[in-house]
Amino acid sequence: MATPTLDKVEDAKPASAPSPYITVTFRIRRYNPEISSEAEWQDFPIEIDPKERVLDGLHKIKWETDGTLTFRRSCAHGICGSDAMRINGKNRLACKTLIKDINPEKPITIEAIKGLTVLKDLVVDMDPFFQAYRDVMPFLITKGNEPTRERLQSAEDRERFDDTTKCILCAACTSSCPVFWNDGQYFGPAAIVNAHRFIFDSRDEGGEQRLEILNDKDGVWRCRTTFNCTDACPRGIEVTKAIQEVKRALITRRF
């Protein structure tokens, strides 16, 4: 008999409970190449509970106001990494950003991540990003015969690269990097993080090859340690530290 109890609680509330809804303005950078070659800011005032996420606000706009608003999202819970966008000038996941945390009194600006070709509204071409990711060979490389049982690893060896296993490839770090904005040839933080994940894995034997790739003129040496990537990472990965560790590995390998 749970339902009556619930009813009672609701009944107990005063009829004029203060509404949690407030009016928030979403200022979204719209771009549609089928209409104009220029991107434009468009304001959407919406009624929303500030404890909801930015993604909920975008859904509300898409479902109730303007169905042409285009953005990527899949799991909507911070794991798939498809809804990275520039919210109030900072790269974040729309599904992990609460409206109350980003000052809902002022218009909230939302635009596509920088440094990648904008295809429509908040959707960018991720191909160059994944090209760089593929180029560091993000898979286990081993020599010799395959063992008949699993490849064991001590807890300490696992801990060595634990931080960089958390990457969800949302591109928030790479598209926050000023070097990447001006030169798409740079591998970018995300590719280096995923190389780091295998370079420091005791089971992997392709570290030498990956270090060689990142020793490229567009590799780790282009990092200016501005820490934009570390600030942007929604998973809290210490991206700049990972890049520095790859640099150190390159230098200690040489000398």
């Binding site: 190449p33 160059p128 090209q131 904005w181 001006n182 040839q185």
Partner: peptide, 19 residues
Amino acid sequence: YDVDNPAPLIEPPRKRTKK
């Protein structure tokens, strides 16, 4: 511009090529 004749996309500088 329309569906058959979209505006040219603005590519970022020095777009990534193969390694």
